[in-house]
Design a protein around this nucleic acid. Sequence first.
DNA 1: TGCAGATATATGATTGTGTCATATATGGGC
DNA 2: GCCCATATATGACACAATCATATATCTGCA
Lengths: 135, 135
Amino acid sequence: MCGIHRGPYHHEGCGCRGPGPAARREGFIQPCLLLLLLEKPAHGYELLDRLADFGLAEADPGGIYRTLRRLEEEGYVVSTWETGGPGPARKEYRVTEEGEELLHAWARSLAQQKNNLEKFLQRYQEVFARKGGET
Amino acid sequence: MCGIHRGPYHHEGCGCRGPGPAARREGFIQPCLLLLLLEKPAHGYELLDRLADFGLAEADPGGIYRTLRRLEEEGYVVSTWETGGPGPARKEYRVTEEGEELLHAWARSLAQQKNNLEKFLQRYQEVFARKGGET
DNA sequence: TGCAGATATATGATTGTGTCATATATGGGC
DNA sequence: GCCCATATATGACACAATCATATATCTGCA
């Protein structure tokens, strides 16, 4: 555990040593799954790897499967069991029209979040540029 | 409630009409408070307004006060009661050295989050640029 | 005097999501 | 027969945001 957290979770870039998952980035896994599935239909275990593209390395498998099932319940993705290949059966998901709409909504939300983050980071840099100049 | 949410919360930029608070941006209020307090010591009610700078308009007062008290418990800010002025007494907060360190850690984490958001948004745009060209 | 409204802080209850731990099953390699 | 990678699933927990509500002070005003 490092200074930035109350709980046992680490944050990306927090600079702590020791074991600890990446930042808890609420509301980011879901849109990432939708985007990855839109690029190419896949099963959960594969998505688990592909999430690393967005900084979500070592995501929690349980969480991924649960999110996928919930997205299916709500009609944003559909799945088919693939029993042909080697190993255990896979559940392959693909995005529905509704899921594509949902991804658009997420993209708007995340673009806004990016703006807010940029505002924060700029103000942050200004404060310390000023402080540096004061000495 | 709009399509993007399971719960009663709205997301920024989600495009829904009707009443609803801004996005639930976990782990953003705390660094914003630290930055605002570093720029200028203030009391909770004032911060409530200043948070709008970072897209956190109409933040929850209860949440702000609780966050400030927790930050104080953990030594990141200190407070003094200001009874001089008009109206009810105010609790003015300012950032400690530890709080400044914490802000640095947050800034690293948020910069990383910004990178991840950018990766997502770029891939998102690429997908739909491709789709648009296919027709 | 009374009382409405802005200012200011505080607390209880609930929820959603992520996280951690664990269970179960299939098939390949040795 | 046994281990390991693959693959999906479920239970328990924690955190931070949200929603609702309570309390107190002071000003303006009728």
